[in-house]
Each structure stands twice: as C-alpha cells, then as structure tokens.
C-alpha cells in the first residue's frame, strides 16, 4: 500500500503532501470559502427576501381585493334593496290610483243608472195615467151606448182605477 509505504520510504512524501495540501486548501478556503461563498449566499438570501416580500405584497393585494369585493357586494345589495322598495311603492301607488278611479267610475255609473230608473218610472206612471184616462173615456162611452146612462167622468175614472189596481 503505497499510501503507507511512502510515508516511511520517501522522505519528501509527507512534507510535499502536507505542503501542497495546505497551500491548495488554504487557497480554496480563502478564495472560494471566504470570497465566493458569501456572495452566493447573499444572492440566495436576497432572492429569498424578494420572494417573501413579493408574497407578502400579493397577500396584501389579495386582502384588498377581497375587501373591495365585499364592499361592492354590500353596495349592490343596498341598491337592489332600494330598487325593490321603489318598485313596491310605485306598485302600491298605482293600485291606489286605480282603486280611486274605479270608485269614481262606479259612482258615475250608479248615478246614471238611478237617473235612468227614475226616467223609466216617470214614463211608466205617465203611461199609466194616459191608459187610465183612455180607459175611463172608453168605459163612459160603453156605458152610455149600452144603457144610455151618462156617467160622470170622475166616477168612470174611479171605477177604472179600482179595476186596474
């Protein structure tokens, strides 16, 4: 095993290995470990911080958007409620107007009907009176022709009235 044999056989072996190991490893430690590594870690840290900040900003924006949406929803609900109220009021008003107009028309119609009925009753009573007069005359004439007795017009009229009743 040369790794161990050379330790004793070659007097330059250990010194050379140690010297070059220390030189190379010290170089790596100083240049790479102390020089490059912190810069790379700083880059990684900066990126991590940036990602964390961006995530936080995105979260805040999300919350703001949620709040905005909530407000929008509330506003929408409020305006829908107002619109519904306005519609209900308009409907009520329209119904009341219609009722009022209907009542007025009803009253007019009732008045017309009453007037017409009164007309009809007047016409009927005048017709009845004419019929009585004609019947009384006719009755007087008939009595005069049949028995030659002249009866007073007033008596005939009373008799006709009694018969017609």
């Amino acid at each position: 095993m040369p790794q161990i044999a050379q330790l004793t056989a070659d007097n330059w072996y250990l010194a050379s290995q140690l010297f070059w190991l220390l030189v190379v490893f010290a170089g790596i430690y100083v240049v790479i470990g102390r020089g490059m590594l912190p810069k790379i870690e700083a880059t990684v840290d900066a990126r991590d911080r940036k990602v964390a900040d961006d995530l936080a900003a995105a979260k805040a924006a999300h919350a703001a958007a949620d709040a905005l949406e909530e407000r929008y929803r509330q506003q929408g609900e409020a305006s829908r409620g107002a619109a519904q109220k306005a519609v209900t009021e308009a409907k009520d008003k329209a119904a009341k107007d219609a009722e009022k107009r209907l009542a007025k028309v009803d009253a007019e119609l009732a008045a017309k009907l009453a007037a017409a009925e009164a007309d009809v009753a007047a016409a009927r009573s005048s017709a009845m009176a004419e019929i009585e007069a004609v019947a009384a005359e006719a009755a007087g004439d008939l009595v005069a022709k049949l028995s030659g007795v002249k009866i007073a017009a007033a008596d005939a009229r009373a008799a006709v009235k009694a018969v017609l009743k």
């Binding site: 007097n11 330059w12 010194a15 050379s16 290995q17 010297f19 070059w20 190991l21 190379v24 170089g27 790596i28």
Partner: peptide
C-alpha cells in the same frame, strides 16, 4: 530542511482547486 516536490498528487489537488 525538508525537500518539497511538486508531485502528481499536488497536480491533482491544483486541478481540483
């Protein structure tokens, strides 16, 4: 007083570095 030689081992250390 110690003889230091550049060896194949040293070469590969440098190559690795």
């Amino acid at each position: 007083g110690q003889e230091i030689l550049f060896t194949n081992s040293a070469l590969w250390m440098v190559v690795a570095a």
